[in-house]
């Protein structure tokens, strides 16, 4: 009996010590992990702050990158953008024309047009137009061949590039301009001269397409052929235009005064298509004053375009 109670006494003590030890170990573990959790929380607090800062930095970097990428895409697509801007330009002129025609806008438009070039004198015309920030339309022909008629040792066809570069419209005045030498023999001979001129322009102005034609001598010169020529032009996607005002430099002008009087007396509409010739030294002389005069009369000087109301299609 005594042995048994001794044994159970020992067992009790061992068990108690064991249970106490376990309790102490787990209690210590509890406090250890609790302290670690606090330490980590504190560390994480700082890290979270840092993370927020880095997040802001990351967002700004991403924005910066997407901006640069957008700029690159824009540059990659520059030709399309340029094409669309030109389209918008002509679309806006059309809108202006419509407002003027309907009487809603009291502005006026003068389409300055220069026939028979390029000549060496054309450079002077271009410089004057540049000086006044005016864009015009050049009805070109190859009647004079490659070299300038007024400066035989200089190539004039390089001017096609110059017209485009300076924001003017190149239009078609047929390859030969041979009014009395076969141009008006038939509708086909006329169309052939138009297409030949188109190809000539394309060759010198990187594929530039002209789609506005002016009959050499004016559409009435075509006589009975006019209707069939117009039909064929339309089939090929060309529009055509004559003129409503001029200084008479295509005839036998004697003085700037005469040119000036001709011009002033012929300007009386809200939308004018003014005929000049870029070989004319008289026109070159009166051009600055003519631009100032038109400006003072409320005219804005613009280049022609296919969709314009003044183009017959």
């Amino acid at each position: 009996m005594g042995r048994k109670s001794k044994k159970s006494g020992k067992l009790f003590i061992v068990s108690s010590i064991f249970l106490l030890l376990i309790s102490i170990i787990f209690l210590l573990a509890y406090f250890y992990f609790d302290t670690e959790i606090h330490k980590t929380d504190k560390k994480n607090g700082t890290i979270i702050k840092l993370k927020e800062e880095k997040n802001v930095l990351l967002t700004s970097k991403k924005e910066e990158l997407s901006k640069i990428e957008a700029n690159i895409t824009e540059l990659d697509d520059l030709e399309t953008k340029l094409f669309n801007t030109k389209k918008k330009y002509y679309g806006t002129i059309k809108e202006l024309e419509d407002q003027i025609i309907s009487g809603k806008n009291d502005k006026k438009i003068a389409y300055l047009t220069f026939d028979d070039g390029p000549y060496y004198n054309t450079y002077k015309v271009l410089d004057i137009l540049d000086k006044y920030g005016v864009s015009a339309t050049f009805f070109t022909t190859t009647i004079n061949g490659e070299n300038c008629y007024d400066k035989k040792d200089t190539n004039c066809l390089v001017l096609y590039k110059e017209y485009v570069k300076r924001g003017h419209t190149i239009a078609n005045h047929t390859f030969t301009h041979a009014i009395w030498r076969g141009l008006y023999k038939s509708a086909d001979s006329f169309i052939e001269a138009v297409i030949n001129q188109e190809n000539q322009v394309k060759k010198y102005a990187d594929g530039y397409k002209t789609n506005i034609v002016r009959f050499p001598g004016g559409s009435s010169t075509a006589g009975k052929l006019k209707t069939s020529i117009i039909e064929k032009l339309r089939e090929k996607g060309y529009g055509w235009v004559d003129w409503s005002a001029q200084d008479g430099d295509g005839g036998s002008l004697k003085s700037t005064e005469e040119a000036w009087n001709n011009l002033k007396s012929s300007i009386n509409q809200d939308i004018e298509v003014i005929l000049f010739h870029d070989y004319s030294s008289i026109t070159t002389e009166i051009l600055p004053e003519a631009i100032e005069y038109l400006d003072s009369k409320g005219y804005v000087m613009l280049p022609l375009f296919y969709e314009s109301n003044v183009i017959n299609k």
Binding site: I22, A29, D34, K43
Partner: peptide
């Protein structure tokens, strides 16, 4: 008592173990 201590100790350990290190 020892079971309670075990419970608290283990739960603290699990809490520590699940804590994200940012």
């Amino acid at each position: 008592i020892s079971i309670s201590c075990m419970f608290f100790g283990i739960s603290k350990y699990l809490e520590y173990n699940n804590l994200n290190i940012e």
